[in-house]
Write a protein that binds this DNA or RNA. Structure first.
Lengths: 206, 206
DNA sequence: TCAAAAAGTGCAACGAGTCAACTTTTTCAA
DNA sequence: TTGAAAAAGTTGACTCGTTGCACTTTTTGA
């Protein structure tokens, strides 16, 4: 975008450019013809590089699509850490997922992108794996917040289920209702016996 | 096992025999050398057939390992349907999973099999997908049992989470503790507000 | 008994991904 | 400026999983 990209060697720029060219070509071709109807060779040729060069930039075909996994993990951790007083951990996660991951795309290009991913098994699975990578970080954030020992199985379970809730919701009639049902379950269980954590406020009930 | 397998054409027998030979050879070679160090060609040659024939019997390399997916689904549904009086659905599922899927293998061959699956990403993922295939059947069983409408999101959520509990548990320090923590969460949430289902008995508390 | 259907087989091919050489291009220091 | 050393790119051949095509065998049924 800007020409003076600060402390970026002339070389890094070319590298980033070809990388971007590859990702762009891939997404364009995938949307045009469908994931399985586009070969690695097609993409490499469209970006005018060799297939081997492509694999120097991306570890596999699926990775071409998930170029910007961005900072979902940080957002998840922040959703737990910075939640408003009196809000339970699962409630905060419910809010975050409803807001950031089921927000009906205002961008039509993004909607088509999601359609592509959801309708291609290989991409669905890859996205799922990426998403689940945040499990341990989220579990640790919950444990820290609850004053539980790191590796606490209950925190690990909540983290796992909260992330899975999004997966469960997609591919169901009403995703938002599905997320709500899932988190109703988790909220109920989280503040059941032997667990008192609604954030250190005067009240204990919501 | 028995020689007089009744209405089985002479042909079906040969078919079943080669299928078994393939599965046996595959498992043996995988255990000997590791999954990635064994090629389809190796397996086909060990069973004395062509690779094309192998793919007529199995849809892919992973399927060679999961030959007998058996009737896990029926067992899950039964665990819900035939649970003892006063036992909640998640409690019954906890019992079933602890009993049937974390039972420390008495069979050493089975232990090695599980070790192979868990240490091979491709097999782990494939097994996960297979396991999750039971999600809708389990959700429907729960809905039927609870008198909830089919496609009830709460039942779908419980089914999804109950199955995921097993996945969560594996690859954690103490799998049994992890399963317990997960189901503590689910049980607590399941019998929270607006949900009264502890199986039609005189008591309502456990 | 003889075709037609079905199942099995081999060969060749395709796509994803890797490997080992070789050719740039860039960088940095003498 | 020159001239390696390093990084990036290219090429081509290769492995491996998987599929399509053509061919042979077996089974079935009239």
């Amino acid at each position: 975008m800007s020409e003076t990209t600060q402390p970026l060697g002339r070389r890094e720029r070319k590298k980033a450019a070809t990388r971007q060219a590859l990702a762009d070509a891939a997404l364009r071709l995938f949307l045009e013809r469908g994931y399985d109807q586009v070969s690695i060779k097609d993409i490499a040729e469209a970006a005018d590089v060799s297939t081997t060069t492509l694999f120097k930039h991306f570890p596999g075909k699926e990775a071409l699509v998930f170029d910007a996994d961005s900072d979902h993990e940080a957002a998840l951790v922040a959703a737990v850490r910075d939640r408003p007083d009196g809000r339970s951990v699962p409630a905060a996660l419910r809010d975050h997922i409803l807001r950031c991951h089921l927000g009906t795309a205002t961008d039509p290009a993004f909607a088509r992108f999601r359609q592509l991913v959801m309708s291609t098994p290989a991409l669905r699975d890859y996205g799922h794996r990426m998403w689940m990578r945040h499990e341990t970080a989220l579990a640790q954030a919950i444990a820290t917040d609850s004053g539980a020992p790191e590796n606490d199985p209950a925190c690990a379970a909540l983290a796992h289920f909260a992330l899975e809730a999004l997966v469960l919701a997609r591919g169901q009639d009403d995703p938002r209702a599905a997320v709500d049902a899932a988190f109703d379950l988790l909220e109920g269980g989280w503040q059941s016996p032997a667990r008192r954590t609604a954030r250190t406020s005067g009240q204990d009930a919501e």
